[in-house]
Design a protein around this nucleic acid. Structure first.
Lengths: 223, 223, 223, 223
DNA sequence: GATGAATGAGTGTTCATTCAT
DNA sequence: AATGAATGAACACTCATTCAT
């Protein structure tokens, strides 16, 4: 079972050369894979080291202990999605197009990054104990709400969106509709007797999410 | 660290009398608490036994092993929500009222039963491996989709709901909007700098969810 | 693995009727099977009870504890071979025929009763600790040496056997030649790459043992 | 109960230095003692570790698990006797002297190495399940039968031995006569009321075994 | 910077035995 | 006489972490 974890290309190079940067990256990548697959308590330090192709002692050298490594994984993972969002340049688009782009990007991101879903589940089982200790994560999120706020304000002014929508509440709704589906698709597929991971099913869900969000944003007076 | 886990009333009675029914229930209840708090790998068999106030050997007597106990918890937990839904008698209400009742019930259920959220997160990290083994869970879900289907059909006929809504997709959306919020409220509170667990915040979210769902269901021609 | 132990006919009757004699016999028979298959430490009290089709508590009722049960098995097993030997009525035969009959009987007994071999191995790993406690086993063996002594004396007087053969030493030799082969046939088959359990192989070994014993007994002056 | 198991000299050195070779040897030696004293199921991993003076975890580091350790003990023990036999250089002696040397060596080896007897008993209760998995044991035995074959052929040619003696059958007979006696001397001493472990008794048995084997080998025409 | 050996507290599980009915 | 629930000590094995080189 343990034997099947293949060394990544990073891992192979880390084993042969003395490249601290690469060693660190290999550990982080291996840790992300292990922890998101098995949870924090389920992940094994030995398995991470083997997967990274690195001596176990190195984990402690670079990250202090298992918890430090976990925190690094958490920060790294949050950072990735927030930076990807920045690259969307939503505020340069018109409100409806911008909102649609955000919704679809978010949905696609959850499809492409199951490790993000998994990590959040783990961290919330810990009641965000590690996240609270992080100095770097909180500031990452200001641009996100800012961006949504701009879109909402402009849409409101142009009569495209309803009044009084809370940007945080809205973002949570956007995330919910994709996150829950992707995270729980295994149990949902069983209880409903349908394969929710099928490609067409995912596309249909994306369209559904757009409809739900946009229907909600539509101003009532237009009806 | 965990020495303070208090014995429940069930536990105290199970310890003094020879009542298999009660012993089994005490174990199941303690296991649910432990597993939902720490995950399957994080939960400790010793802690479950101590919390239930029974000898550790009894867990194995009644449930075979830790995995068997986990499966029992899973079945028990799923059964509870599905039976509570049946008690709503939704099909006796008019479509909009029925839908609203389902949405609010679901939201309130997630607030009241954090163990349900937690357990689903755990099971999905296992890719539903245990759920797939259960014989009893699948049939539990037929009435749920049936109930929603009836509401949708009637609403559609009466011109209250849009056409072509998929009951499974809709239920997933209803669940998403509450589940994600409650499950991830710890991390969300940190990253957005707001206390999402506050009482008024929960009430507001409930109202928001209703609006989102009903806005989506509204037929486009009415707008 | 545990599921395959079938209840014997004794076991089935013991379960339905209140027949102490039969219950006791069923337990003894099940215990013999378990203990000789897995050794004293390897045998499980639960497995014995299940195999006997009897409540575990009954083992304690009839035999005190696991060790008492083991001692009963030991006495029962020794008693069986010694009584079978008595039934040979060796002293009524002429010396060579009598000796040959003893040798072949012993060999056949080991073939037919692997549990005897197994139990002796177990008891000798305990340095005969239980056997020493038994009151009934020692007296069982006087007829055996007596019988051999008679044969040797008569054979010696008739010039058929060499002088000064010690009956105990001779019996040990007779037993050795069959016992070792049967007890260790599994490892011997592996290390020598031959199937020592094959029917013809067993027959050949029986003839070989006879030859060895009789060659030894032949008086040197005859050569 | 077993608290008095003293640390061997190997064990004491292994505890103080970081010497993998010695640690491994100390574990193997301790395991041999424990397993041969109590059988595979009776042997305790904790007891082995304590006796070896190493941390329990090291057993798993070097040998995988208890079964792997047992297999190593088995291979090590078989290897020892087979190499000791090679050192006899039997084929350089005349047939009768060579055979006598083999017989007496075998007898003395069983006296000196009770662990060999015990281990074979254990392995045969397992129906040689572990031995069958070993890659290294089978080849060890070819020289033994080869050696005996040479002696038999030469003895036959010189008219000293009878025709048609099977080397495997003969070796089993030689081993039987000593093995059974040593392995079962505890029960035999009880049932026959004699101390079969007494020094003079062992010497007498050695002489008896030689007589039996050589009497069998003597050609019939000489009689 | 990097390694493999070493540790002690703990993991799920099993044991022979006893209790209450 | 017979049963199934209940027990506590022990079982093989694993964990994150540290030491010596």
């Amino acid at each position: 079972m343990e034997g099947s974890t293949p060394k990544s290309r990073d891992a192979l190079r880390a084993a042969t050369t003395r490249d601290p940067e690469r060693t660190r990256a290999a550990i982080l990548s291996a840790a992300t894979a292990e922890i998101t697959a098995k949870g924090l308590t389920g992940a094994r330090v030995d398995a991470i080291a083997k997967r990274a192709g690195v001596n176990k002692r190195m984990l402690y050298h670079y990250f202090g202990d298992k918890q430090g490594l976990y925190l690094a994984v958490l920060e790294d993972t949050y950072s990735a999605i927030r930076h990807a969002e920045q690259d969307l340049h939503l505020t340069e688009l018109d409100p409806v197009a911008g909102m649609r782009k955000l919704v679809l990007f978010t949905w696609q991101y959850f499809i492409d990054h199951p490790e993000f879903l998994s990590l959040l589940a783990t961290e919330n089982m810990n009641r965000a104990a590690y996240l609270k200790k992080s100095q770097s994560i909180r500031p990452l999120h200001r641009p996100l709400t800012g961006m949504i706020e701009v879109l909402l304000k402009r849409g409101e002014a142009e009569g495209l969106f309803r009044h009084g929508v809370d940007p945080v509440e809205l973002y949570i709704t956007i995330a919910s509709l994709g996150f829950f589906y992707m995270q729980n698709r295994h149990t949902l597929s069983v209880i409903f007797g349908e394969n929710l991971s099928a490609f067409e099913r995912l596309a249909a869900r994306g369209e559904h999410i757009c409809e739900v969000v946009l229907a909600y944003l539509q101003p009532p007076e237009k009806k």
